[in-house]
Design a protein around this nucleic acid. Structure first.
Lengths: 200, 200
DNA sequence: ACCTGAACACCGTTCAAGT
DNA sequence: ACCTGAACACCGTTCAAGT
């Protein structure tokens, strides 16, 4: 998943002189990935798009409305991504292993997610992250349940697993001076799977 | 730990007419706990302290310098808090259990930490959180090592445990519509301890 | 040693006027 | 249907002048 992938035309379309609301939303998403949520400001965006900031307000009533539109765009894309790849795998332990591997190695696909976690401060970000998190929790719970755990254990293990995922993204951001080396990282992923995926 | 506890005089001292840099730093910390890092703005703070914003620049060269001073203040306090309570416990599993219990039940002491996690966006916040996280990781690694794990396993288990801690704080913020009920929460904490603390 | 008050830059928002 | 340009509010920053 690259940023251009979040754009239906792959980012290659020539825009005509005039802009649509989608153009603004996509530009905002790009900015989030590049510089974080705080960087989404009307005036810089307008400069980037080659128009004056006044024109922004024809498309959106406020900066917040733009943010919300950008986040909805990301959420839709995100949902299709994750659920598409894993639904095919029938065995729950296999599916969990694949999920861990996917999450561990597709670093790029987590850039925007990480940026949103950093900006949980913002009221517009919280509901989106909340919905995405809830869907992922439900998915994990179902898999642990299918792997033979009780309803309670499956739910708690899902919470623990997802917390570990979110926390790891945070730590990677925080301890970037102490980022794990390749072999060390692989060993960590193995340790996590051995600890959290129930044995046969 | 309450907010007033982060203030040496407990917040009850009558200020004389004039302010010190510490007064500004403490006011900033209070604001962080109440409304988050983004709320630390010079003009509102000046209003709150009953002076004009111009006077702020006698004490600090910039808003960022104020933020950094406030965070240093918190970091010092935080360090004494956590390491004071646990050093007395000799048995590593006991100490780990106590740590989990402490973290699970002293909700108030995590308010500022949570606020900082939400604002990881800000360059001034990252190094502070980085240092605090590194100290806690080291503490966890040492305890797991003493509990009989190999150096590698202890380090990985510490990473997983701390990631779970950070992630859980995030989830509590994110899923506030789905906050766990008391019994459900206790069951979750038990599950986490059973999964992450090595057996005898 | 600490504070005021006026100034300027930057960004969000509004709106009448343009094409 | 979309954009400009000027205006205003708000906050960060500077600084000469006050006590």
């Amino acid at each position: 998943m690259t940023l251009a992938d979040t754009q239906p035309d792959g980012g290659k379309a020539e825009r005509s002189g005039r802009l649509s609301a989608e153009d603004w939303a996509q530009a905002a998403l790009d900015l989030i990935a590049e510089q974080g949520v705080a960087a989404v400001a009307v005036e810089p965006l307008a400069r980037r798009l080659g128009v004056t900031k006044g024109s922004f307000y024809w498309h959106f009533p406020s900066r917040d409305a733009l943010l919300i539109a950008a986040l909805e765009r990301w959420e839709k894309f995100e949902e299709e991504q994750v659920f598409g790849k894993l639904e095919a795998i029938a065995d729950p332990r296999e599916r969990l292993r694949s999920l861990f591997e996917l999450v561990a190695h597709e670093y790029k696909s987590h850039i925007i997610y990480s940026e949103l976690l950093k900006a949980l401060d913002h009221p517009a970000v919280q509901p989106v992250i909340g919905r995405v998190s809830q869907r992922r929790l439900d998915h994990l719970t179902a898999s642990f349940r299918q792997a033979g755990m009780s309803r309670q254990d499956a739910q708690n293990r899902a919470r623990l697993t997802y917390a570990a995922y979110v926390g790891f993204l945070q730590l990677n951001l925080q301890l970037h001076q102490a980022r794990l080396q390749h072999d060390e990282f692989e060993a960590y992923v193995e340790h996590v799977m051995a600890t959290l995926i129930p044995a046969y």
